[in-house]
């Protein structure tokens, strides 16, 4: 059971600092989650911390590849607008 970071990540370090298990590491081209260490924060916090602070939609996904912060959920930009402007990453469209 572990979350993953996608190519949407902008390497802002926010998740790195709040992970209770030191599961996140600075890698190229973007940060990654060590799935041996990630517990999805169970037992530590009700919400997975990386997903609670990450500012970028679709940067953090679960094992099924579902975005914890889907398009429009953080910026409140209407989803139709994001589609119209081609701002939804194809794998999350």
């Amino acid at each position: 059971m572990a979350l993953q970071i996608t190519a949407q990540c902008v390497n802002c370090w926010a998740c790195y600092d709040v992970c209770p298990n030191d599961a996140i590491y600075d890698d190229k081209p973007h940060f990654l989650i060590d799935d041996d260490k990630c517990t999805e924060c169970l037992g530590d916090h009700p919400d997975p911390q990386c997903a609670a602070i990450c500012p970028i939609e679709c940067a953090i996904v679960d094992e099924l590849g579902e975005a914890l912060n889907p398009p429009g959920s953080l910026t409140n930009i209407p989803i139709e607008k994001l589609h119209a402007l081609g701002l939804v990453p194809p794998e999350f469209a």
């Binding site: 902008v10 802002c12 926010a14 600092d17 500012p55 970028i56 910026t75």
Partner: peptide, 14 residues
């Protein structure tokens, strides 16, 4: 100081 803890509507964290 790269990380932030709020979102502003005039900011894009890219």
């Amino acid at each position: 100081a790269p990380a932030c803890n709020i979102q502003c509507n005039y900011c894009n964290r890219k």
